[in-house]
Simulated scan of single mutants.
Amino acid sequence: MDLNKVREIAKDRMKGYCRVCPVCDGRACAGQVPGIGGTGTGSAFSANLNALAKVKLNLRTIHEAVNPDLSIAVFGEKLNTPILAAPITGASINMGGAISEREMVDAMLQGTLAAGSLGMTGDTGVPSMYDDGLAGIRAVNGRGIPFIKPRSNDEIKKRIEKAEEAGALAVGVDVDGAGLITMALNGQPVGPKSFKDIKELVSFTELPFIIKGIMTADEAETVAAAGVSAIVISNHGGRVLDYAQGAARVLPAIADRLDGKLTIFADGGVRAGTDVLKLLALGADAVLVGRPLIIGAFGGDREGVKLTIETYTKQLLQAMILTGTAKASDVPQGVVVS
């Protein structure tokens, strides 16, 4: 199996929900939410890709980085690659249902593990889908990270307890889902969180706690003060706020403000290993991939996910060699020009 075959199968299985475009930039699916497009004009979706495209790599070939080390550590787990699967849910709501939620969860979690990485699971307007994610995490002996929508704290706590019972490595809340249409359509209220709310949730569990959806330096400082272990720089794939900035544009200021206080994940618009290197150079500790892995799951199950991550990892290795980057865990800012 190769990526072309994976994409061919996915295109057929996702017909009417995703066109599996040659370039996944959100143009053809703008406004298709539910679906996997960006909200409104699709500007926030394309902003992620445009922000990455503006960042250029410095070619360097006079150095000793002959065999770069791609490994990183995440919550005590050593990974072979800094590329992880973003929390994704809604196989039936957003993607047509050609595979079930549990099948997608298993493809993501098992495919990422086979590639030497980790996967994340999500939450949506159908509560049972969060449970599907936890079942998948149990099946891989806890090597996965569930994310919960910004429901009431009482509802979040119930789901944190389930994550603990599943043996998850960490748990997160994707606050960028505060205005999701799919949640409203299914009668599942969500909304913004205060500093007090986040601090309460952090103190509720001994698991590392992640907040996803940070796009400004001041909010990064706020959640750091609340005691979170990690953040995800993300505009929710451009699916919540039209005209939001791209993740790569805001990442450097956030990384500079935090100055190593916590782990920084970044997602949005990653379509190649060079994109991964750019985000690492801009301040991320690891990078999350979303839509390309959905296509991998629909087109090739766990093997499609594994193949996608391995392909991006090979591209990252080549880019590291050609920029003189010795370690994925320590990418110098000078690798890029932005």
Score class of each variant (00 low, 15 high):
L241A: 13
L241F: 15
L241D: 07
Q245V: 11
G246K: 06
R249M: 13
R249W: 10
V250N: 00
V250Q: 03
V250G: 04
P252A: 10
I254F: 06
A255F: 03
D256A: 12
D256N: 14
D259H: 05
G260C: 02
K261I: 00
I264M: 00
A266P: 06
A266R: 08
G268L: 02
G269N: 06
V270I: 15
A272R: 13
A272P: 05
A272D: 06
T274K: 05
D275H: 11
L277W: 00
L280T: 09
L280I: 13
A281D: 05
L282P: 00
G283P: 00
V289C: 05
G290R: 04
R291K: 15
G296W: 00
A297E: 13
G299N: 12
D301S: 14
D301C: 10
D301M: 11
D301N: 12
D301F: 13
R302K: 15
G304H: 03
T308I: 08
E310S: 03
T311Y: 09
Y312K: 06
K314H: 07
Q318S: 09
Q318K: 14
A319N: 08
M320E: 07
I321G: 01
L322H: 10
L322T: 14
T323F: 04
T323Q: 08
G324L: 13
A326R: 14
A326I: 02
A326G: 05
S329E: 08
